Amino acid sequence: MPRARRRATRSASTRGRARWAYTRINTAVALLEHLASLDLTLPEATQLEIERWLAAGPSTRYEVRDFLVWTARHGHSDDLLVPHRGKAEPEGIDEETHWDLLQQCLHDEDLPLDVRAAGSLLLLFGQHLTHIITLTTGHPPQPLATLLTRLVDQQPRQGWSGNTPSTWLFPGTRPGTHRSASSLARALTGHGIPIRASRVTALVQLAEEMPPAVLAPLLGLHVITALQWRRRAATDWTAYLQARQRGLGDR
C-alpha cells in the first residue's frame, strides 16, 4: 500500500496498478487463510510449508513475496524465501510483417484514421496503449505530425464534442476524457495489428539503434527497463546470426 500511495502522488492510478495491488493483497490473505486451516499462525509457518503452498497453486501465489519480505522485516514471521516469479520472454513479429503493418498504417486510406495514428505510434515507438491514449495535440512527433494533425482536424464536432474544448488526440465518449485503452485495443486488433507483439518488435529495433541512456527518456522508460530491452535486442541479433550461419552451412 505505501508503494501504491507513492505512485499515486506521481501520476493518476490506472486499472493495471489497482489490479497489481489487489493481487498482492488477495494473495497474502489466501496464504493466511491456508495457514489458519492448518491451525498455524504466521510466526509458526516454516519454509517447507510455504514451498508446499506455492507448488500447489497458480503462479500468482508467488506475488506473496512482497508480503513475506515485509512480515520478516517487521518481526511478524521468520525469513521465508519466495523466488521471483519467472516471466516468459515476450514474442515479437517478424521484421517484414512489422514494416508491412507500419506502411499500411502510414499510407492506407481505407483504414480508420484513429487506427492508423495509434498503430503508427505503436509500431514506431513501442508505446503502451495506456500512454498513447493520453497524448495531446501538443505531442505529435515527426514523421507522424501530418497524420496526427489530420486526426485532430477530423474529430467529430457535433453534440458535446463541438462545444467542449479538448486537446486529446484520442478523445473519449464523455466530455473532457480520453479514449479507453481497451476500446483502442479492440480497434487495432480488429484491423489485424497485434498489440503486444508489435510493441516488442518496435522496442527491440529501437534498442538495437540507441543506447539505454537515450532510449529511456525518449520513450519514458526506466533506464533499467531500457537496458533490459538492449540485452534482448543483442540476444535476438545473436540468435539471428547463428540461424543464418546454420542456413548457409546447409547449402
Rank of each mutant, 00 (worst) to 15 (best):
S180R: 11
G190H: 12
L227N: 09
L221P: 02
R230F: 10
Q155P: 05
S161Y: 08
R231C: 01
I224L: 06
A216L: 03
L215C: 00
T173E: 14
Q245P: 00
Q127P: 03
A181T: 06
T146S: 12
T201C: 00
L215A: 01
A216F: 07
H191Q: 05
A239E: 13
Q142W: 05
P211Y: 05
I195T: 05
Q155D: 09
P217R: 06
Q228T: 11
A233M: 08
T177G: 00
G162N: 13
H178Q: 13
P212K: 05
G220D: 02
N163F: 15
V204K: 11
T164P: 13
V152Q: 15
D153S: 11
L135E: 12
H139Q: 05
T137R: 12
G162S: 11
L241Y: 13
G220T: 02
P140K: 08
E209N: 07
P141S: 00
S182G: 00
L227A: 13
P156Y: 03
V214C: 06
W168A: 05
L129D: 01
R232F: 14
G159T: 07
P217K: 06
R199L: 07
A187G: 01
T164H: 15
T238H: 07
P175R: 11
R196W: 05
R157Q: 12
R231P: 00
H222Y: 05
T225H: 01
A213V: 02
L151G: 10
T189K: 02
R157G: 10
R244F: 01
E209S: 03
R174P: 00
R244I: 09
T130E: 03
R232I: 02
Q242C: 02
Q142Y: 06
H191L: 01
T225K: 03
G126M: 07
T149I: 12
V152M: 15
Q154V: 04
A239C: 01
N163S: 15
T235Y: 09
R174S: 08
A213W: 00
P175A: 15
E208F: 02
R231Y: 10
T146Y: 08
G190A: 07
G162T: 13
G190T: 09
T201R: 09
S166V: 03
T146M: 04
V223A: 09
R232H: 14
A233P: 08
G126N: 05
Q245R: 12
L148G: 03
L169G: 10
W237F: 15
H128I: 00
